[in-house]
């Protein structure tokens, strides 16, 4: 489809802030989003991720700072002129319209000819595999189908950027994993820039090219999933993305992932133990065991072991040695 707007956009967010009264919801955020990137804004509720997304979409005024799309500021362009696709939390489908009318709405308000609208809607229906549901109303669709209608509607006018506000929040766990794959697949096929808001770290890790961890309105750390998981800069990042033990060393605080620790009965290890302790509890998760170990001196260390690697069963109260490689622990730049 011939489109007046580029189908890929890069965004440059500069010193962006949002104040609600005295409350600083977004605090001087700087972020460059590349063309075709899948970027996730990840953070607990109240971290400012949705506020940031709403400012990008144009639903909230900017208190300070600027947003550039492909080099030109869009701060003063109203939401309806920004041409950004958006999948809303709860989908916000038009309940009185059929699936076809919902998906065709954006082109219809742009007064495109009926033949073009029909062709484009058919294309979108193929993309999200909803060809059999064109005449249903949203109320007659399942949650997963509604989610796909919302996605097709948001992509119908070939936006340069697609914003997704917790689009999988309303789906059950099993469906969510399925839809994650579909979303990623669609992103790979159409190449539009995706900005994805979630508080679910697994979603963020499995889908994103880069993740922005947000905390109290600020960007805590930005990086690929691998970078963030393997090299967290702060205690917050290490504990928000996955689980982590924290060890106080003379030269600073170290993060240590539970699955990177080897555990064995006291004195049976190959090398010297880094820590020794007593098993406090063992929880069985099928593929792995979670062992909580009390270390002399009051700290507690969590160890995740693959079940198949345990050759001598551990028991509660047993003395154990803990070892790990030097590369396993990461020194945190910030507390």
């Amino acid at each position: 489809m011939a489109s007046p707007v580029p189908t890929q956009g890069n965004l440059n967010i500069r010193d962006l802030s949002k104040k609600f009264g005295d409350f600083l919801a977004v605090d001087k955020v700087n972020l460059k989003i590349e063309k075709g990137e899948f970027l996730t804004l990840l953070g607990p509720s109240g971290s400012g991720k949705t506020t940031l997304l709403m400012m990008i979409a144009g639903f909230l005024d900017i208190t300070a700072g600027d947003i550039d799309l492909n080099g030109a500021s869009i701060a003063n362009i109203p939401a309806e002129k920004r041409n950004f696709g958006m999948v809303f939390q709860g989908y916000a489908l038009f309940p009185h319209m059929t699936v076809r009318e919902n998906i065709g709405y954006a082109l219809s308000v742009r007064k495109r000819p009926a033949s073009e609208i029909k062709a484009r809607v058919d294309e979108m229906l193929d993309l999200v595999q909803l060809q059999d549901f064109t005449d249903r109303k949203p109320g007659q669709l399942s949650g997963g189908q509604q989610q796909r209608v919302a996605l097709a509607r948001a992509l119908s006018f070939a936006p340069p950027v697609l914003l997704l506000d917790e689009p999988l929040g309303a789906l059950d766990k099993k469906l969510r994993v399925e839809v994650q794959d579909q979303l990623k697949d669609i992103h790979d096929r159409i190449g539009t820039t995706f900005i994805y808001v979630t508080h679910d770290q697994e979603e963020a890790l499995s889908m994103s090219d880069r993740i922005v961890i947000m905390r109290d309105g600020r960007t805590e750390q930005v990086g690929t999933p691998l970078e963030l998981y393997e090299k967290p800069e702060s205690r917050f990042v290490a504990s928000f993305l996955g689980k982590s033990n924290f060890l106080e060393q003379p030269d600073g605080l170290y993060a240590l992932r539970p699955e990177k620790i080897d555990i064995c009965a006291a004195g049976t290890g190959a090398g010297p133990a880094r820590l020794t302790g007593t098993v406090r509890s063992i929880t069985y998760f099928g593929s792995m065991l979670r062992v909580m170990v009390d270390i002399a001196g009051g700290t507690e260390v969590e160890v995740d072991v693959d079940s198949w690697r345990i050759n001598t069963p551990l028991s509660k109260g047993q003395k154990v040695d803990l070892t790990w490689s030097d590369a396993a622990s990461v020194k945190l730049a910030r507390g």
Binding site: G58, A79, N83, G85, Y105, V109, R110
Partner: peptide
């Protein structure tokens, strides 16, 4: 909001 976002 969705309607405005879609250009209406």
């Amino acid at each position: 909001n969705a309607s405005r976002n879609l250009g209406a």
